[in-house]
Amino acid sequence: MADAKKLAEQLKKLNELRGPVPQALRDQVAAQNKAQKAILDALKGGPKTAPELAAAAGLPADKALWYLVGLRKYGKIADVAGRGDYPKYELKAGEAK
């Protein structure tokens, strides 16, 4: 684990070298966090498909799917087994709260 002081120095140096973190990047990450939270909130009500989650989170379906892929890869949500044109996703145990 990094020494807090050393890390702070490194990050400060980084800010000096490259300038502050661009606002566009900050906005992008904020939008990402908001979208992911909206998806996870919507899933608290039970398993849903990508278009359903897109509607609930106010996102285009392809964007919602991409967020689902990320949340799935990093263990926040899981596939629901079953048939049908649109597969459903659910919260992974332990991620419900």
């Binding site: 379906a61 799917l65 596939d79 049908g84 044109d85 649109y86």
Partner: peptide, 15 residues
Amino acid sequence: PYGRVLRPSDGKVPG
């Protein structure tokens, strides 16, 4: 990425 075959626009299983 999807763990199965889906289409990118909306996560539909392509028929």
